[in-house]
Design a binder for these strands. Structure first.
Length: 946
DNA sequence: TAGAAAAGGTCATGCG
DNA sequence: CGCATGACCTTTTCTA
């Protein structure tokens, strides 16, 4: 229900609040995907493409392409090939004839939207990426693909077949516009299909593969008092027959060394992202949702009708919103206030349709953004929240809170500008108390919050003054950017804010915001995965005296005293660290052992599980430490003078509270559990990397950073426990790529990498299943969490093979290596820029395995994932993990007080990579129908079918 | 006629 | 140093 309501209000309210200027910021350039600055030469385009086209009108004949006209034109690559950019401009409908001066008439705009509405009758309610349709270069390809039989045949010829005079005849509805819409519908359908496949795979994987236990979880729960299980479920895992018998790791008994395309599972994914939303597709859902909302009478009828009426006015290019706003600019806020007054929370979810303002080349695809305006009690609020700041629409005791997670700047500006247009602000700057707000600092996005509320100039009218921290995610690092006393705004140091738009979503007050139908997480799976889905999967055995002993509880681990820093000459890079027996000598290893503990993970629904009350928590973070490797700090806003993250606010979590023995024990149990899971499902623990590096990459020599990572970290002896199934045992590197890749065999490399990347799926699924509390999450929520988090966890793991100083990838388990430059040459190669960017962020922190593990667990356990049924449950679990991560970081890095804050800033970065991956994969598929995808890519994505 | 919106001009910037 | 780029500005056209 709330899902529908959520969807229901998002788009109309959002766009109705926006002026055309702001709208342009939210619309992508149809050529490159950058932020559109308006309607230029017949299409929405950015200033760059506009200028390029203008110049090209006189000199395009001199353009050449060294890639046979096959260059991808994106925000990242648009300057690499003039010819292809020019072609792309033409393909999407740019033309001199399309030029138009002056305003567009209302009638024209309405006509345009009528056309849009017809296109929407396709019923596509899936998510797509750009309003411009990046397949416009090869529209004919749609007809050759499985996606080509729908809208394309509806009497709309490809754009390149349309006369260029069409835009002139009807500027608002040029050929490209129609074409793009249709293409997007097809893409959306394709992505929806992928999502379905992914869900199926994960579901099967959850059912049949891997360890179904949480390491010591039941024990942990009972011992440490973790309230992670529904009543009566404590100890369930341990009682499962065969739990000690070994189970099958989903990756089977194959390691990277035999991780061929025919064998290894292949999955890639994309986080659900607003970047894949589409106004057209969403509109249908809004309408449906509105109807359901009416039926279910979960919101005031009048509001429902009001919004429903608005929905019909929503258009793809935003022009309609101008019209709507012109006469009814404040109406959405009235609706919102009605809902707030009725005690209903309203969720504002920024749509991501923009791009960073600063440096387009550094632009990172947008990520999910959530703004929450919700009625909450004052309980648990920060002290800044006072009753004197009371919303006009909020009744006493039912105060309204506003929290913004991952807000994009231009979106925010646009939204608030739209609010400011309204006549009588219901929320005055002086009322600001606890609005959570994500300030902008140029790119990316972040979970930030102004403890003092919205800056006056950005305070949305109509939002409640009692804005206090409230989110379905405890991950709300609080910047001190807004000083409620001085009124000055200090941008936080490292938000990676992408621009985009906002959408508003009303939800039932009894429920958490449900998802906008965002883009699917896409997975590529290989054939053997399917086969293994139906058979028990082995897992490392943990009989008494074996590997379990390598994971002593935290209480037994003696840590180095704070302040010692990273260096300890007594410790070696071999991981001895005073414990020579921990040297990761795997030379003795026999082929992968059989695994135990094949558990069926039919996790009981925890919908009835009582949710513990949250405590107020504020983590004081001291200024970040100086980057160890001297690199720039990419997660810092170069425009900001304040380069610190001084405060993070995590709901229900106060690290300043005394660490009681009970709490410490609890956290240690969590750390142990996650750590074990990580070691069992990830080849690249740093001790293993050290071993593999010496064995397969001896020419590299030792890397001192590993000793930094390991010197005071988790006391784990890898030599005493079995490595994950498939870990290489050969003396020589089982290479899969030629020694010399000159010229680079891009296709082969891509296959190699995709197989490696996607082979992570089973391991990551198994890792997720072993996260404390995961098993007790609602079944569908489990799938949702994995689906949306898998790619992000895989990205985290990728950072362990990326040498960001030399821009090389060293695949430790096979002895293969390739450069970032080589990677660029393969399909989807540009994605590596994003992966490396993330790797740079995280690698400089010199984290240990335990921190990687906990970060991965936090990423998986994200309550802000679209579609979650029980966000509170997930939120609580993430809270525990965050607490554990904070504890672990503070223990491992006693001298780096800003590290935890910086570590959290990597999460929004992760959110940006997944959507871009799937977008590019689909683009590749449609633009290059002859491209031979790996078997499982093709199978999962249905890529080779036409 | 004011204001909106797009075309076209300008120039700082970065790159080869 | 020349050139391409793109952000910003001015001019032009059109609508309300």
């Amino acid at each position: 229900m709330s899902k529908h309501l959520t969807v229901f209000l998002i788009f109309p309210l959002f766009f109705l609040l926006l002026a055309s200027d702001e709208l342009n910021e939210l619309i992508k350039c149809m050529v490159c995907g950058d932020t559109s600055t308006g309607f230029h030469y017949g299409i929405h385009s950015c200033e760059g493409c506009k200028g390029f086209f203008r110049r090209s009108l006189t000199q395009h004949e001199s353009y050449t392409c060294s890639n046979n006209g096959q260059c991808d034109i994106s925000l990242y690559t648009r300057n690499q090939c003039q010819l292809c950019r020019w072609k792309k401009c033409l393909a999407v409908g740019m033309s001199k004839e399309g030029s138009r001066l002056g305003r567009r008439s209302k009638r024209m705009i309405e006509k345009m939207h009528e056309t849009i509405a017809k296109q929407r009758s396709f019923g596509d309610n899936t998510v797509v990426h750009q309003p411009a349709g990046f397949y416009s270069n090869h529209p004919e390809l749609f007809n050759q693909s499985k996606y080509g039989g729908q809208p394309m045949s509806a009497g709309h010829p490809p754009s390149h077949m349309l006369p260029t005079s069409i835009p002139a005849m009807y500027p608002g509805m040029n050929s490209s516009f129609s074409m793009a819409a249709m293409m997007e519908s097809q893409l959306g359908q394709a992505m929806a299909n992928h999502a379905q496949s992914i869900s199926t795979i994960i579901k099967q994987e959850l059912d049949h593969s891997g360890s179904d236990r949480e390491h010591s979880l039941s024990e942990t729960s009972s011992i440490s008092g973790l309230d992670m299980s529904p009543p009566g479920s404590v100890g369930r895992q341990s009682s499962v027959p065969g739990a000690s018998e070994g189970s099958v790791n989903g990756s089977g008994n194959r390691g990277y060394g035999s991780d061929s395309m025919e064998q290894s599972p292949t999955i890639s994914s994309v986080s659900l992202s607003k970047s894949h939303e589409d106004s057209a597709s969403l509109n249908n859902m809004y309408i449906q949702a509105a109807m359901r909302a009416k039926e279910e009478k979960r919101m005031p009828q009048s509001v429902s009708e009001e919004i429903t009426e608005k929905m019909s006015m929503i258009g793809r290019d935003g022009s309609k919103f101008e019209a709507s706003m012109a006469g009814e600019g404040d109406l959405p806020m009235e609706a919102i206030n009605k809902m707030l007054a009725a005690g209903q929370p309203v969720i504002l979810i920024p749509r991501d349709m923009g791009s960073p303002e600063s440096n387009s080349k550094d632009m990172i695809p947008p990520s999910p953004t959530v703004v929450v305006v919700q009625n909450t009690s004052k309980e648990g609020r920060d002290d800044h929240s006072t009753s004197r700041h009371r919303s006009k629409s909020a009744s006493p005791g039912n105060e309204v809170s506003v929290s913004v997670a991952d807000m994009a700047s231009s979106q925010m500006k646009a939204l608030y500008a739209g609010h400011r247009r309204t006549s009588e602000p219901m929320l005055r700057p002086e009322d600001n108390t606890h609005c959570s707000f994500l300030p902008h600092s140029g790119q990316g996005n972040q979970f930030f919050q102004f403890p003092g509320g919205f800056p006056p100039q950005q305070m949305p009218q109509g939002l409640s003054p009692q804005s206090s921290l409230l989110s379905h995610s405890p991950l709300l690092p609080m910047s001190q950017g807004w000083n409620p006393l001085s009124g000055r705004q200090h941008l936080p140091p490292s938000p990676l804010l992408s621009s985009g738009g906002q959408v508003m979503v009303p939800v039932s007050s009894s429920q958490h915001p449900q998802q906008v139908p965002l883009g699917p997480t896409a997975f590529l799976a290989q054939q053997h995965l399917k086969a293994e889905m139906h058979s028990p999967k082995p897992l490392p055995q943990h009989s008494p005296g074996d590997g379990r002993d390598c994971f002593p509880t935290r209480q037994s681990v003696k840590r180095q005293s704070p302040g010692k820093g990273h260096s300890d000459p007594n410790k070696t890079s071999k991981g001895s660290h005073g414990k020579p027996e921990c040297s990761p000598d795997f030379s003795h290893l026999s082929p992968p052992q059989s695994f135990t503990t094949a558990l069926q993970s039919s996790a009981p629904s925890d919908s009835q599980t009582p949710i513990s009350k949250e405590k107020k928590m504020v983590i004081k973070e001291e200024p970040r430490s100086i980057p160890i490797d001297g690199d720039d700090i990419p997660d810092a806003d170069p425009k900001s003078n304040d380069d610190t993250l001084e405060e993070y606010k995590l709901e229900g979590f106060n690290p300043e509270e005394p660490l009681t023995p009970e709490l410490k024990k609890k956290l240690c149990k969590i750390i142990d559990c996650v750590n074990k899971s990580y070691h069992e499902t990830c080849f690249y623990t740093f001790r293993r990397i050290i071993f593999l590096r010496e064995r397969y990459f001896p020419f590299l020599g030792p890397d001192e950073t590993y000793s930094h990572r390991l010197k005071n970290k988790y006391d784990h002896d890898c030599s005493k426990c079995p490595p994950p199934s498939g870990f290489p045992t050969s003396k020589d590197p089982p290479r899969e790529l030629p020694d010399v890749l000159l010229p680079v065999d891009s296709g082969r490399m891509w296959q190699f990498f995709s197989s490696k990347f996607t082979s992570q799926i089973t391991r990551i699924v198994n890792f997720s299943k072993m996260i404390p509390g995961f098993k007790h999450i609602d079944r569908e929520d489990q799938i949702t969490l994995i689906k949306t988090g898998l790619f992000e966890v895989a990205t985290i793991r990728f950072s362990t093979v990326a040498d960001t100083k030399t821009n090389m990838v060293y695949w430790w388990t096979t002895g293969d290596k390739f450069s970032l430059e080589d990677a660029h040459k393969m399909p989807l190669g540009n994605l590596f820029d994003l992966l490396f960017d993330f790797a740079r962020r995280v690698n400089r922190m010199l984290l240990d395995d335990s921190e990687y593990a906990l970060l991965s667990a936090v990423v998986i356990m994200s309550p802000d994932r679209p579609g979650l049924k029980n966000r509170e449950r997930v939120k609580q679990l993430q809270l525990e993990l965050l607490h554990a991560l904070h504890y672990e970081v503070s223990q491992n890095h006693p001298g780096e007080h800003g590290l935890f804050a910086r570590l959290l800033t990597t999460i929004p970065k992760l959110r940006e990579i997944g959507p871009e991956h799937i977008r590019r994969l689909m683009e590749l598929k449609i633009k290059s129908p002859g491209f031979q995808f790996p078997a499982l890519h093709a199978e999962v994505f249905d890529l080779n079918n036409s």
